[in-house]
């Protein structure tokens, strides 16, 4: 197990290297000179020249990359052009919001998506199945921001149940009750992803329910609910876990939109604002971290996969 984990961590290195090259090239692909982009329109030629020299822009591209990558390895992602503070600090400021949002969203997805998927598959072909699986598909067809806007209109503006925007830190006044700021955003973000999980759980359970061992379980005289959960769902979980990496990617995409709709001070909105402000060091840093997170989550998924399926051996 430990050996396998280390080996997998080693295989992450080439992927990360390629990703870092792509991310590094991204700034250099932007039309124009990076130094003048970084300094903005008001910069004098002298300032641009001095920054160019400082950034090593006069050196060959591969040397520039090595310098940048060495700095990244030391945790130095550069300075934010807009905030004039280290990129890592800017990202850290948004981390709390994004992590809280992600956890609450996962809570809804698991709490709603999995049971509804099980019910949908267990009543396959009935009206219950048609409503739940059709409803899930409808939910996945709704633009995230549109759903968020109408949730704000109904539950914040109309009923006044929840705040419509922002998120004070849970370490500020109000403590954990500040999480109420995240209820609407997390529901918005959970909706399409829970819908995907419903469809996924349903499809995998239907696949498993056609397998021979399910007939064996029924021949034991077990209650249908027990067959559904212990035998069908447990085996379907293998396929669901395998698709979890993709769910994460979808989650990040939609978090960008959701945080913007609800004006949450998270990493997702930071990306959008940095793109609009052309704050390239921040964009580079955030994207590199998200790719790293994606790879780590996929590694965890693989490890979980081996725990779920005894036929898989970690060699």
């Amino acid at each position: 197990m430990l050996g396998y984990t280390l080996k997998r961590l080693l295989t992450l290195i080439p992927t990360l290297l390629v990703a870092s090259i792509l991310i590094f090239l991204f700034v250099h692909l932007i039309p124009g000179d990076p130094a003048s982009i970084l300094l903005g329109d008001s910069a004098t030629p002298e300032e641009i020249a001095s920054l160019s020299a400082h950034m090593g822009l006069d050196r060959p591209l591969w040397q520039q990359y090595l310098v940048w990558f060495k700095n990244v390895l030391h945790g130095d992602f550069g300075q934010s052009i807009f905030f004039k503070t280290p990129v890592l600090e800017v990202i850290a400021d948004g981390a709390e919001t994004s992590i809280c949002l992600a956890l609450m969203t996962m809570f809804w997805i698991v709490l709603i998506g999995i049971p509804v998927g099980i019910v949908s598959a267990s009543f396959h072909g009935s009206w219950v199945d048609q409503i739940t699986s059709g409803g899930a598909m409808l939910l996945a067809s709704i633009p995230t921001f549109w759903l968020g806007l109408y949730l704000i209109l109904i539950f914040s503006v109309g009923l006044g149940w929840f705040p419509s925007s922002g998120f004070p830190s849970i370490s500020d006044e109000g403590g954990l009750s500040n999480l109420r700021y995240l209820i609407l955003p997390s529901l918005t973000l959970a909706a399409p992803n829970a819908a995907l999980i419903v469809r996924l759980v349903r499809a995998s359970m239907l696949d498993v329910s056609r397998e021979d061992h399910v007939r064996t379980a029924r021949a034991k005289g077990l209650h249908p609910a027990r067959v559904s959960i212990k035998h069908v769902f447990r085996n379907a979980l293998i396929a669901v876990a395998a698709a979890f990496g993709f769910t994460f990617a979808a989650l990040v995409s939609e978090a960008v939109v959701t945080e913007t709709v609800f004006s949450l001070p998270g990493i997702g909105r930071l990306v959008v604002q940095s793109i609009l402000r052309r704050d390239y060091p921040v964009i580079q840093g955030v994207i590199l971290l998200i790719v790293l997170l994606y790879l780590v989550i996929n590694l965890l998924v693989d490890l979980a996969y081996a725990r779920l399926d005894p036929r898989v051996s970690l060699q």
Binding site: E211, D212, H213, R215, T216, A217, R218, A219, K220, G221, L222, H223, H231, R234, N235, I238, L308, D309, P310, R311
Partner: peptide, 23 residues
């Protein structure tokens, strides 16, 4: 019916390779 299945009446299937739950 279920009280009888697997209890007073039991069945062995054709495909031993797939008739047991792999997990």
């Amino acid at each position: 019916r279920r009280a009888i299945m697997g209890n007073q009446m039991a069945m062995v299937f054709q495909e031993p390779m797939t008739s047991l739950n792999p997990v």
